[in-house]
Design a binder for these strands. Structure first.
Lengths: 132, 132
DNA sequence: CGATCTTTGACAACCGTTCTCAACAGGCGT
DNA sequence: ACGCCTGTTGAGAACGGTTGTCAAAGATCG
């Protein structure tokens, strides 16, 4: 149950530190492979899962169901505005929304409330390049 | 390109009309099979997809990535408070949240904004039965 | 250095979903 | 009613992301 610091784990963490956007496990795997830091795909998944469990990275689901990972600046609860084309991310929070969510849920007699609030859009750069 | 009214499609729509909660394609398939209305799994998926495209049903992703379907009372934009154990659903809306979402996204220069806002919890009934 | 015990990686297994394609059946014209 | 035309069905294969398997590799401690 230790948590040994292996070359592979270090590589994953470093890659995440350098990338500001949400990336899939497979994209990260490809990135690592491209830079010579060969790491097995299963290992990338395991590392990401461990990091997510430790709240070291945020996870969210793309529209096609793929999981995307990102090392966020703040560890406190927050949400994201993500470019669906390039993954560019802006961290956002909305105290008003938080309050609204828990109030609504409680009013219906629900417990253990959790909310999913994510914003998707196309960032200025991607819009420009898509327009040619 | 017609859109023929087949026994199978009718069966899927009827099942959805009778079930108030979010259900997966596989659960619906099982339900249909159980009541004697034998329909192929692929057909259930196709019917649900067609209904979703026509905005006849709402789709959302469970935490494990499975798609859940529900015939909602209103066709206008709204969100849901869903029991993660039984699928019980309450339709909710929050004009405040809508406004907040589009304002935040626009302020960052994002376009084609879309938002995912879903509330998950444990409903009173499930809490009671879980506590034995 | 050696023993121990977690971690790794190639590959198989999984699971939800979609594709394939021959058999089938609405629905329209006659 | 009858048939034809074409969209639909269903069993199973294929797919894509993710997780499990297990022998080999390597990190940590004495």
């Amino acid at each position: 149950m230790a948590a040994r610091m292996t070359r592979q784990r270090t590589a994953v963490v470093e890659a995440l530190d350098e990338i500001a956007d949400f990336r899939s496990a497979q994209q990260l795997h490809e990135t690592l492979r491209a830079r010579g830091e060969s790491v097995g795909l299963a290992t990338v998944y395991r590392a990401l899962q461990a990091l997510a469990d430790a709240s070291e990275v945020d996870v969210l689901r793309a529209e096609d169901g793929e999981s995307l990972y990102r090392r966020c600046a703040r560890r406190e609860h927050h949400h994201h505005l993500v470019c669906r084309m390039c993954g560019r991310t802006v961290e956002i929070d909305g105290p008003t929304v938080e309050a609204w969510a828990s109030k609504v849920a409680a009013a219906q007699g629900f417990d253990d409330i959790e909310h999913t609030i994510e914003l998707w859009g196309t960032c200025a750069d991607c819009r420009a390049s898509a327009a040619r």
